[in-house]
Design a protein around this nucleic acid. Structure first.
Length: 890
RNA sequence: AGGCGCGUAACUCAGCGGGAGAGUGUCACCUUGACAUGGUGGAAGUCGGCGGUUCGAAACCGCCCGCGCCUACCA
């Protein structure tokens, strides 16, 4: 045995600072994370949800990447061909904004530089700052194959984007058209529907009187945006609304203009809202646009791209849309058309990047016809080729996909994949080609010009699962790793991203799904369920957490919290708790090292013949097999929190609390056989534990592993434990019995305030000879663990009056404590016990007395209840007897 | 308005058809040959409410109360 002070291998508590850095380097040097593509092995592959290149690690990333890493490390240890592709997303608008802000501090705008110079500037920025989040992911221990890092704008992926675009165009699935889109007048670009945030704002509802053209009367319409009336080309009412049925042929004289507009009848109008009449502005409202189409109304755009009124707005030309609103209201009022202004709260769409109020407007944009693609994705989920976890998301997925609109993919910014379309300035021909054309394919003119728009960022990320593996080339990576095994991401991008990967994956990869499983994890909130935000000040920064508690503690916490739900309320106290757990593991290993440091690694061979081992070793091997099975199942089913809790429970409360305490006497024994058995099993179980936890807490486990005796390869690439045939019910039952006795005696000591160092005499009495025999056999272990001077098997009726008592099943333990017994306290304890038993007995007797129960319940349940009843009755008898005896002295 | 979800010990959460669990906190005792980032023992819950299904419900169904989130075309 080594003296503890001489033990130089492990410090007294786990200090993570140097350890983490050290192993990051070693794993890197050893190429531990490099994907292997060996024949005949199962594949496990994951592509990272690429964080924005402008991103900084937040707790959501930490959760997301911990979960991925747990699975990836697990499968790598299982010997699978394992690939985890890392990378970042060019994040068009976000990145452009960052660089534009940087330019602004120099007093410049992007137009001062021009397109090419600006893009170069963005690349410079990316070179300098774009690695931040990648480095932070590395710091977390994410075991991506870093050699394969990809960027959505790098050469290979750009080629894939172009190929995808050209194919879709040639297949007629991409078209260019003048449609209403969400327009950001500040970013000067179209936005996809899901790039618009809706926020309730206080506003006004203006009621405006629209006179009939024939002067026979008027109708009042309501609007929150009076300035759009300049673009009104109709008034809509419900076809069943009698109030307006006579207006079919009468026009409306639009105030402030000299135009007369028609009344149309449309089911979209709500009869009971306001007056039941709706002004229709097809050019500046999505619904009005649809109504306009249905009734062939003119589309009249009255604003320009900056949100400034244009020449169609007549005298209002040149006014900003909000200034124009004021002016219009004033004019309407003056001319007597304004009926009423009421306060009105409603949702206003804002640009998700700059919060400018979005202007719905028509413009010439590129679209993907998604319906046929969406149907295939839905089909793949419905027939189980793709599974969404948790499956509660299926319904949301279906309903979104069924109502999906064509996807506007063009953006009027500079940073992104420029649309590979050229138009001929002479004949107007549009060319979409994979190779840049130098002249018009129709008229031969060299006077051609490339489209200036770039593609929506999500277009390139939709290709991610296969573009990162070399598509459109046929690569070994694709062959080995596509479809990927599982996609792990946050539910809030199910539609932005996941659905689009499904659509593109199926389309371009010959109906092969991009991933078999999708795991949608929760959003991380603070411990009260509030969204973490800088302004609230409740943000938990993973970088700070890693510094304070260590990366392993953070990872374990996140894993333990990762139940399949919609939100995770993260309580910082829990992180500390799990840090203590890691320290516990550390110290248990330290203890083990005191006994096995100088041994040969082959001492673990004793586990090959478990039948030759003493009971407690067989017990821990049985529990180890159970824990191994449970962890594997949990990870296979994405029940991360279960894996964490199985490990926690097993390591702390079974391995440390019971097993280590129990084998101490053997470890210190002079009997070499016992000692070697203890050392061998101890080392084996510790090795197994380290392997089981490694996917969750890679650093501390690798560190401990490295000091264990013998030459050993890195833990990261060691074999994950398989379930050994060690589970043994009989052994577990016997140990449980002994534990019950030990707990009982400890309880008596504690209740009677016997000082822990005082050795006492204890007695056990039980009518069951089998149980008595086991207790007899383990007298020494019981005595060691309860600090007894002696343990005696007593005959019935031998019990002295002044003894502390505890009853476990049908076993009574007692400790004579002359003068130390507080009779009243003891009586209270027994009464509590008795009343609890009485309640349970009543319940069970009720069940077993119920004929229907006996008839309907499965027989094993009935048997179980009967067994329970016998046990409780025996215990009750003991308790009543003890009470009676106690009453006699009292 | 529709959809989804949540309400279990003081707190943060598991469990989701057969005896109410974990961590933290709390109380008592204890520096016993890894660990006080520890040990031992204890207290603590009509499992939001009311009905229903069932031999049996915290779990399944319905309604109600409270709280979130998402989607939406009430202008």
């Amino acid at each position: 045995m080594k003296n503890i002070e001489d033990n130089k291998t492990l410090a007294k508590s786990y200090e993570f600072d140097n350890v983490e850095e050290k192993w990051l380097d070693r794993w890197n040097e050893a190429g531990s994370f490099a994907a292997k593509m060996e024949e005949g092995k199962p594949s496990f592959s994951v592509v990272i949800p690429p964080p924005n290149v402008t991103g900084v690690l937040h707790v959501g990333h930490a959760l997301n990447n911990t979960m991925q890493d747990v699975l990836v490390r697990y499968h790598r240890m299982c010997g699978d061909n394992t690939l985890w592709v890392p990378g970042t997303d060019h994040a068009g608008i976000a990145t452009q904004n960052v660089v534009e802000r940087q330019l602004a501090t120099e007093g410049k705008g992007r137009h001062d530089l021009g397109r090419e110079a600006f893009i170069e500037r963005v690349w410079d920025w990316r070179k300098e700052k774009g690695g931040t989040i990648i480095n932070q992911l590395k710091r977390m221990g994410a075991s991506c194959d870093w050699e394969r890092e990809r960027f959505t704008m790098d050469e290979g992926l750009s080629k894939a984007v172009r190929e995808a675009f050209v194919r879709l165009y040639k297949e007629g699935l991409i078209y260019k058209g003048d449609y209403i889109v969400n327009w950001c007048p500040r970013c000067l670009t179209a936005l996809a529907d899901d790039e618009v945030d809706h926020e309730d704002k206080k506003g006004k509802l203006y009621h405006i009187r629209y006179p009939f053209a024939d002067g026979s009367g008027d109708v009042v319409v309501a609007t929150t945006r009076p300035e759009t009336m300049l673009g009104d080309t109709g008034v809509a009412v419900h076809p069943d609304d009698e109030r307006y049925s006579h207006l079919a042929d009468v026009g409306i004289k639009l105030p402030l203009t000299d135009r007369t507009i028609p009344v149309v009848f449309d089911h979209h109008v709500q009869k009971d809202f306001g007056t039941g009449a709706l002004k229709v502005t097809p050019a500046h409202d999505r619904d009005d646009y649809e109504i306009g189409l249905r009734h062939s109304l003119e589309i009249m755009k009255v604003m320009d791209e900056h949100g400034v009124m244009n020449e169609k707005a007549g005298k209002y030309e040149g006014l900003d849309r909000f200034k124009c609103r004021k002016q219009i209201v004033a004019d309407l009022k003056e001319q007597g058309f304004l009926e009423e202004i009421e306060d009105y709260d409603h949702a206003v769409g804002q640009c998700y990047r700059c919060q400018t109020v979005v202007e719905p407007t028509t413009s010439l944009q590129w679209f993907v016809s998604v319906k046929p693609l969406a149907d295939k994705a839905v089909e793949a989920v419905r027939d189980g080729r793709m599974n969404i976890y948790p499956k509660t998301w299926n319904n949301s997925f279906y309903s979104w996909m069924d109502n999906i609109r064509d996807w506007c993919i063009s953006r009027q910014i500079w940073w992104g994949h420029r649309i590979p379309a050229w138009s001929c300035k002479d004949c107007g021909e549009l060319m979409v080609e994979s190779v840049d054309p130098d002249k018009c394919s129709k008229c031969g003119s060299a006077n051609i010009e490339q489209e200036t728009d770039v593609l929506d960022t999500w277009f390139s990320s939709a290709l991610w699962p296969f573009s990162t593996m070399g598509w459109p080339e046929k690569t070994k990576e694709l062959e080995t790793f596509y479809p990927t095994s599982v996609l792990i991401t946050s539910f809030d991008i199910l539609f932005f991203w996941v659905a689009r990967m499904m659509m593109f994956g199926l389309h371009f990869m010959e109906d092969e799904v991009p991933f078999k499983d999708v795991y949608l994890h929760a959003l991380v909130r603070d411990k009260h369920g509030k969204k973490m935000s800088k302004s609230t000040g409740n943000v938990l920064d993973p970088l700070v957490v890693m510094e304070q508690y260590g990366t392993d503690a953070m990872r374990f916490t996140l894993t333990a919290f990762a139940a399949q739900g919609r939100e995770i309320k993260l309580d910082e106290d829990r992180i500390e708790g799990y840090r203590f757990f890691i320290n516990k593991l550390w110290n248990a290993s330290r203890f083990a090292m005191m006994h096995v440091a100088d041994c040969d690694a082959s001492i673990t061979d004793v586990v090959n013949t478990p039948q030759d081992l003493p009971l407690i070793h067989r017990w821990i091997l049985s529990r180890t097999a159970k824990a191994t099975a449970d962890v594997r199942t949990a990870l296979d089913e994405y029940r991360f929190n279960d894996a964490a809790s199985v490990i926690y429970q097993f390591v702390w409360h079974e391995f440390c609390d019971w097993y280590l305490e129990w084998i101490k006497s053997d470890l210190f024994s002079k009997n070499e056989v016992l000692q070697n058995q203890a050392r061998g099993v101890l080392l084996h179980v510790l090795e197994t534990i380290l392997k089981l936890i490694h996917p969750i807490t890679p650093f501390v486990t690798e560190e401990i592993w490295s000091v264990l005796p013998g030459e050993r390869p890195l833990l990261v690439t060691s074999e994950f434990p398989t379930v050994q045939p060690w589970q043994n019910e009989e052994v577990e039952k016997q140990v449980e019995l002994l534990m019950g006795v030990i707990t009982g005696i400890r309880n008596i000591r504690s209740e009677a305030d016997v000082h822990p160092s005082t050795k006492i005499d204890a007695f056990v009495q039980c009518a069951d000879s089998e149980k008595t025999e086991i207790i007899q056999e383990f007298t020494n272990a019981i005595s060691d663990m309860t600090r007894l001077a002696s343990l005696t098997i007593a005959a019935e009726g031998d019990k002295p009056d002044d003894a502390g008592t505890y009853i476990y099943q049908d076993i009574e333990m007692y400790v004579p404590l002359k003068g130390l017994i507080d009779v009243e306290k003891e009586q209270e304890k027994l009464e509590r016990e008795r009343s609890k038993l009485e309640k349970s007995l009543k319940q069970i007797n009720g069940k077993l007395g119920n004929k229907k129960f006996l008839a309907n319940a499965p027989s094993e349940i009935v048997e179980k209840e009967k067994g329970k009843l016998a046990e409780l009755e025996a215990k009750m008898a003991k308790v009543e007897e003890a009470k009676k005896r106690l009453a006699e002295i009292g």
